[in-house]
């Protein structure tokens, strides 16, 4: 009511493209009696990778799905490019923890599925999918089915599917957790290159401290239920040192230690 009375008054002009691609503002989420998130506020700078790090069950997936528009917050709001999220949109794409591939569709159809749903003509969508299949290193597997691929390859399919709809924001829910250690390291390196080359905003859920420090521009540490952001860490000093050197960097090791120190009291 108060708002409508002053609606004629001049408003401050917003800058055209806010520097934060995504903002979560006072988000709370209850699952019945379970309070998963409480009054969580967090900003996701454009073009950067922000990790959500916290012990399992602390509400990381919940927050990511609220950002995706797959879940509604109990209160609070999500802004993408300054606009409130009311459901899934073309500005966001999701990479699922369990891959969520169609078992009856081959790699080509799975990767092109997002475009298929948008009504993009077959030849066009397959040309786009072809490119991303190549980019994630699956060239030659276009006609394979998910059950013929390893876990790592399946997640590459999930990644290519998310990339091919060309969303500005990529939401990744523990994408590497079901993948073996060697593949996971390769993935992390590829992810760094992806952040560098694609002009996208990445929101990346993980429960691995090392992984978060290795890939992130910004790490939001979530505390167990009801979860809020306890700390934001920006490992800026180690960025740009080259994928090979990061893991040996003293600052990298320092940050890992510091995060462990603040999380250890919550792990029994």
């Amino acid at each position: 009511m108060a708002m409508s009375q002053i609606s004629d008054a001049p408003r401050p002009i917003r800058e055209p493209a806010p520097e934060n691609a995504v903002v979560a503002r006072n988000v709370s989420k209850h699952y019945g009696p379970v309070e998963a998130l409480r009054d969580l506020t967090l900003e996701f700078p454009r073009g950067q990778l922000t990790s959500l790090l916290g012990p399992s069950g602390c509400g990381k997936t919940t927050l990511l799905k609220i950002i995706a528009g797959l879940l509604e917050p109990t209160s609070g709001e999500i802004l993408v490019n300054g606009e409130q999220v009311t459901g899934p949109g073309p500005d966001r794409a999701f990479v699922f923890q369990d891959f969520a591939l169609l078992p009856w569709a081959n790699v080509m159809r799975n990767v092109a599925f997002g475009l298929e749903l948008r009504g993009v003509a077959r030849s066009e969508r397959e040309a786009i999918a072809e490119r991303y299949i190549r980019d994630v290193g699956l060239a030659g597997f276009e006609d394979s089915y998910p059950h013929q691929l390893s876990g790592g390859m399946r997640q590459r399919v999930g990644l290519a599917r998310a990339l091919s709809v060309d969303a500005q924001v990529l939401l990744m829910d523990e994408p590497f957790s079901a993948v073996d250690e060697q593949t996971r390291r390769k993935f992390q390196e590829d992810l760094l290159a992806l952040v560098e080359n694609e002009n996208k905003t990445f929101i990346f859920v993980t429960h691995s401290i090392e992984e978060a420090v290795y890939v992130s521009d910004q790490i939001a540490i979530l505390l167990p239920r009801p979860s809020r952001v306890s700390e934001i860490i920006r490992p800026s000093g180690i960025r740009g040192k080259g994928a090979d050197n990061i893991r040996r960097d003293p600052e990298y090791l320092d940050i890992v230690d510091r995060i462990w120190a603040s999380l250890r009291s919550y792990v029994e």
């Binding site: 995706a68 797959l70 749903l117 948008r118 599917r161």
Partner: peptide, 12 residues
């Protein structure tokens, strides 16, 4: 998870 994937990719 498959239905959710469909929704996330804007399926009607």
């Amino acid at each position: 998870s498959l239905k959710e994937m469909g929704k996330a990719f804007l399926a009607r």
